[in-house]
Design a protein around this nucleic acid. Sequence first.
DNA 1: TCCGTATTTTTTGTCGACAATTAATGGTTT
DNA 2: AAACCATTAATTGTCGACAAAAAATACGGA
Lengths: 256, 256
Amino acid sequence: MNKTRPGTRNRGRPKVRPQALAGQAPAARETPAEKENRIHGAIVDGVMEQRLKPGTKLPEAALCELFGVGRSLVQKVLQRLAHDHIVELRPNRSAIVAMPSREEVGKLFEARRALEEAVLPLVAEHATRADYASLRRQLRKEHAAMHRYAQTEWAGLASAFHLRLGELSRNPMLQRYLSELISRCSLVVALFQPPGNATCEHDEHERVVDCLEKGDVRGARREMDRHLRDLEAHIQLVEEDTNLSLADMLGLAAGP
Amino acid sequence: MNKTRPGTRNRGRPKVRPQALAGQAPAARETPAEKENRIHGAIVDGVMEQRLKPGTKLPEAALCELFGVGRSLVQKVLQRLAHDHIVELRPNRSAIVAMPSREEVGKLFEARRALEEAVLPLVAEHATRADYASLRRQLRKEHAAMHRYAQTEWAGLASAFHLRLGELSRNPMLQRYLSELISRCSLVVALFQPPGNATCEHDEHERVVDCLEKGDVRGARREMDRHLRDLEAHIQLVEEDTNLSLADMLGLAAGP
DNA sequence: TCCGTATTTTTTGTCGACAATTAATGGTTT
DNA sequence: AAACCATTAATTGTCGACAAAAAATACGGA
């Protein structure tokens, strides 16, 4: 089901380029946690910016060389990524970038709607006037980016809005779950959305804030639900294959 | 090598008893995943049944000997437990059983209420008559256990009810989040509830099912909210220290 | 006796080595 | 050629070794 072209064998598969990490040398003294976050972040960024497409193999040895660390660390990071559903971890096989099925995507958005709505009452309960002001400021930036056609930036700001709502719930657990779902959603949105075909949401975010500020939680939930269904409706499935090197996908290409 | 003789300066701290794992010998051929689950399960059980109290240190070396595995596996399991917030992982220190603060407990229950209510509409949407029947059957068992004063069994069945609702939502992500929150709640409930002082919930679970079956989602949510607030209200904070051995806490005491 | 410091012991962080498993290759037969 | 099986190569699973960090202990002076 995966192999769309049965005839082609091992063509331009992602290969390691050992000198790639020279450009991104690790900082002077790095704490263990920083090391781990550097690797984790590099992979997450690669996935989010579509350099690492779903199904790409991530062999431990390659990552070790690219980041200049041992396998223990790489394994720990992969473990973490697997828990966030960013990579898929199969026994005795290379880890691969997660490729959610259409059904999973449906469930994913369903879960996100449920959680995002569940968070709104808490936001309304805790948010101060200053919080709303900062939300509005953020929305202005978002609008600006959209009209500048700065797509990646806009995408980032758009999910930042939802993440901020998670913060404003003042509940660490719900916030964490929500961020997880939002990340996964941006992943599939980025994935299934050919560049240039951005969902041009008018001001659905604004409407949510309007309702919240009026104290109309019910209305806010309704708007949010609509907004998220809109988002889901605009994605479409495409699958392809490139032959970039793994180092390139990770943004670790050697400098000039 | 390791000390084989009882410590001369043993102040009753949890210590390792190497022969303890003889009673719980690993099965003939164990797949890697099974191995991992065995360890994970043993610790989870230990925590859930209050043998492992919050703050108990879990040194890697001790766990290695107890379960007869290397440190890699133990580390992986600890990592996983940390992600579930069952243990706390501090850099360069032993992992300890998680000890949630009072505030965290509050937020925890808040999150659980939010999620548990968010799940109910989906349950109402997907559940068949057969599902409700099986729910009722489970409730009868629960009742029976309560009237038999089988506390641990009852506690297990009670959370099984909530877990079942998670299943019936037919949404893997929400189900996972909910299980996580439920586990943590049972942890603190078990923790803060002196044995014998069980919360005697009358039939709050039944009422939720009643509403669901009538299609009254709103009412179900109200009942669930009340039920969970009741539960939270009955816990109280106590902290103490025992001097059982780690092997005992893990239920790995030597056989006959 | 109490407190701050030096030393020893315990414990984790990280790595490479070897075994086990899976994928890739090559050769043989139909 | 295509399918099948044996062999080789690539990759993960698991472990113990060593170094670094923290804790526990021992020591010396006020």
